[in-house]
Every structure is written in structure tokens, then in C-alpha cells.
């Protein structure tokens, strides 16, 4: 357990600016720094969670590490290969190592495609698998995510939100990745469906050593999956460390304010939290 696992994803000094206003000549007159000097490491079989307020740059960071967006500065290294230095075709070959699952299971699956094609596409693209062999492989993948071969020839609209998210995960798995980047992947689900999907992700991690970059604003969910937590605020990482440390003894006022704002179901936990906030109150904590 204590042997250090290999780093599968390393982000170094990532910075991204967006033009938010141009003048009549098309020149940028207003720019916004969405991500600034963000660095982190993710090890095989581990989960790093990215948390922080809306607009703090979490999704932009995800798009930078998956090379959907080019950084203005900084590098991304995946399993020892610097993605930010690769050309288009080399990048296309490497892509299978890192797959993404997005928030909206309704928007992220092509409504015109049957499940077998949606999930089978990465098999075709990366391994040239087709026909019966593809059907067999897709059926296996569906079983791994708790669906079955009888769903092969169905369309997305025939599935519930939770099932669609399983399909999206099956598709991500089809590429045989080392890393999955999940951006608010369980946010739209009710808590019992959410728990099923989270257990599935944890099982997959245990069985095949997958690493997760897990983005969520639900701090209860993050607590249940993360080994490490990185807190973003206005484009920067303000605090990061082992999950237990972040939750039990946060150092930054911003992290404390986030934890203090989590709505709790249990009245006793609410009282505990109120105690925590007043104890550590430095005037910086916002309630």
C-alpha cells in the first residue's frame, strides 16, 4: 500500500486566458484569466478531486488536461508523454489513455445512435474492432457498468439519467484508459442513483487501477471518493492535500468557508459544524 504509485497525470503551471470583449477591429480589449499557474499530480489508482466555487476554473482545467483546449502556458504530461508538445495525429493516438465523463447525461450521448454504436465507437477508432467482436466487447462493458446485453440496441431516450451516466462510463472504459476525468458526472442524479454510480467508479478503480480526476461541488460526494483534494479559487489552487486533512483541518479561510456552507441532513452534524466554525472563526469565515 505504501509504495508510491507512478504518476499518470502531471499538470505544471497551467494558465488559460479567454477574450471576453473585442473592439470593432477584432482586437481583444478585455481578457479573463480562467486558470492561472495550476499544478498537480495524479497517481495510478488514485482519485484527485477538484473543488471550488462556480467559475473558479475547474472545467477549464479539465479541458486543458484532456487537450480539448490549449493552455497559454504550462504543460500536461500523461503517462510520461508530454501532451502539450504532441502534434494532432500523435495526440489522437494517445487520447485513449484519458477519457472524459461529463455532467449532463442527456446532452453527452448522441441521441441518434444506439448504445452499441455509442459504446463501440472507441473500440472501432482505437482498435479497429467491429461486427460481432464489437457486440461481444460492448456487451462485456455494459455488464461491467451494471447494464446488460439486452440494452445493446436501445437509444439514449429509453434510459433513465442514472443509466445514461452508466452508458457514458462504459463508453469511456471502452477506450481502455488509465485516467478518467469526470466533470460533475453525478451532479444531476438523485442520491441513491448517485451512490450506485459512485460505487461503480470505486469498483472499477479497485479492479483495474484507474485514476480519476473528479470534479464536483458536492463536498459529501468528494469525501466519499477522493484520496486527495485540490481547492480552486478564482483560477488558482489555494490549498491541496490528502482528503482527510482538507476535511478535518483545512488551513485556508476559503476552504473553511466552503466546508461551513455544506448543507447537512443530520441536525447533530449541523451543530458540530456550527461549533467548528465558531472555534476556528477568525472573521474571515463566511457563514
Amino acid at each position: 500500500m505504501s509504495t508510491a504509485r507512478e504518476v499518470v497525470l502531471r499538470a505544471t503551471g497551467l494558465t488559460k486566458r479567454f477574450t471576453t470583449r473585442r473592439n470593432v477591429l477584432g482586437r481583444a480589449v478585455e481578457r479573463l484569466t480562467a486558470v492561472e499557474d495550476v499544478s498537480f499530480e495524479l497517481r495510478a489508482g488514485k482519485t484527485l478531486a477538484l473543488v471550488g466555487e462556480s467559475g473558479s476554473g475547474k472545467s477549464t482545467t479539465a479541458r486543458l488536461v484532456t487537450a480539448l483546449e490549449k493552455p497559454d502556458a504550462g504543460t500536461v504530461e500523461v503517462c510520461g508523454t508530454e501532451w502539450t508538445a504532441l502534434g494532432r495525429s500523435a495526440l489522437r493516438r494517445e487520447r485513449r489513455r484519458m477519457q472524459m465523463v461529463f455532467q449532463d447525461p442527456y446532452a453527452s450521448l448522441d441521441p441518434t445512435k444506439m448504445v452499441v454504436h455509442t459504446v463501440g465507437e472507441p473500440l472501432l477508432v482505437h482498435e479497429g474492432v467491429r461486427g460481432q467482436e464489437r457486440d461481444r466487447r460492448v456487451a462485456d462493458l455494459l455488464e461491467r457498468v451494471g447494464l446488460s446485453a439486452r440494452h445493446l440496441h436501445r437509444y439514449p431516450y429509453e434510459f433513465s439519467g442514472g443509466q445514461r451516466q452508466r452508458i457514458a462510463i462504459a463508453r469511456a472504459l471502452a477506450a481502455g484508459p488509465d485516467i478518467i476525468v469526470a466533470d460533475e458526472a453525478v451532479s444531476a442524479l438523485d442520491v441513491s442513483t448517485q451512490a450506485q454510480v459512485l460505487n461503480l467508479l470505486l469498483d472499477l478503480q479497485r479492479d483495474s487501477g484507474l485514476a480519476f480526476l473528479f470534479i464536483s461541488h458536492d463536498l459529501g460526494v468528494v469525501r466519499q471518493v477522493a484520496d486527495h483534494v485540490a481547492v480552486m479559487h478564482r483560477g488558482r489552487l489555494v490549498e491541496s492535500g490528502p482528503a482527510d486533512e482538507i476535511y478535518e483541518s483545512p488551513r485556508e479561510a476559503y476552504t473553511k468557508s466552503l466546508l461551513a456552507a455544506v448543507p447537512e441532513v443530520s441536525p447533530s452534524r449541523r451543530r458540530e459544524r456550527a461549533g467548528l466554525v465558531t472555534e476556528s472563526s477568525t472573521g474571515e469565515v463566511v457563514g
Binding site: 442520491v191 441513491s192 448517485q194 451512490a195 459512485l198 458536492d218 463536498l219 459529501g220 460526494v221 469525501r223 466519499q224 482528503a243 482527510d244 476535511y247 466546508l259 455544506v262 447537512e264 441532513v265 452534524r269 458540530e272
Partner: peptide, 9 residues
């Protein structure tokens, strides 16, 4: 099924 912030299960 509510995920707790208090401890990891």
C-alpha cells in the same frame, strides 16, 4: 444514501 462529509465509508 446521502454521502457524508464527516467520514469516508
Amino acid at each position: 444514501a446521502v454521502p457524508s462529509t464527516a467520514r469516508r465509508v
